[in-house]
């Protein structure tokens, strides 16, 4: 009886160690992607970090429900989006625009930096319903079907939003180009 109990205990702590390993692997593999998604979703560093913390803590609590490691990313995004929605239920934060925050990679050349800053500003200026599917497509490489599933939308709606998102980015880029030419012409 006692030896059996000990075996049980050993297997329980083994399970715990396994879970811990799985969790740490999950954090290391996906925290960057999830953080970037959060940044583009809320456009604020501190809030993004908070949401990512909450997301991973929730992920830990229900880690057993994650059966397929391939689904981990979209699972985490779903938790993250829910956490973001919950934040709005709790309290509306004062958000800082992403172009005000210094998120610039110092290692890049000046020219590229300026280009990135401009693009960031344009992407940040997109409304959330356009920004989110665009991020999923560009950064996460999701297909139209996958985005539709992740955001719980109709595929046609997703494609329309993606089209409008690129249209707006293009327009904004052209506008700034002509401004540039006017200023320098």
């Amino acid at each position: 009886m006692f030896s059996r109990k000990q075996n049980n205990k050993a297997s329980v702590s083994n399970d715990m160690a396994n879970k811990q390993q799985r969790y740490e692997a999950l954090v290391l593999a996906l925290h960057s992607d999830i953080y970037r998604y959060a940044i583009w979703l809320v456009k604020d560093k501190a809030v993004a970090e908070d949401i990512v913390q909450e997301t991973f803590l929730r992920a830990w609590k229900s880690l057993d429900s994650l059966k397929d490691e391939k689904a981990a990313k979209s699972w985490l995004i779903t938790i993250l989006r829910r956490e973001n929605a919950r934040r709005f239920e709790r309290k509306q934060f004062d958000l800082v625009d992403i172009d005000d925050v210094s998120v610039i990679d110092e290692s890049l050349s000046n020219e590229v930096q300026i280009e990135h800053r401009e693009l960031r500003a344009i992407m940040a200026s997109l409304s959330e319903e356009y920004r989110e599917p665009l991020m999923l497509q560009i950064v996460f490489g999701y297909s139209g079907d996958e985005i539709a599933k992740q955001l719980d939308l109709n595929k046609n709606t997703v494609m329309t939003r993606l089209f409008r998102a690129r249209n707006q980015v293009k327009d904004a880029l052209e506008k700034s180009d002509t401004q540039w030419e006017v200023q320098n012409g």
Partner: peptide, 9 residues
């Protein structure tokens, strides 16, 4: 856009 979106973690 992908490059630009890669903010520092």
């Amino acid at each position: 856009m992908c490059d630009a979106s890669q903010v520092n973690v």
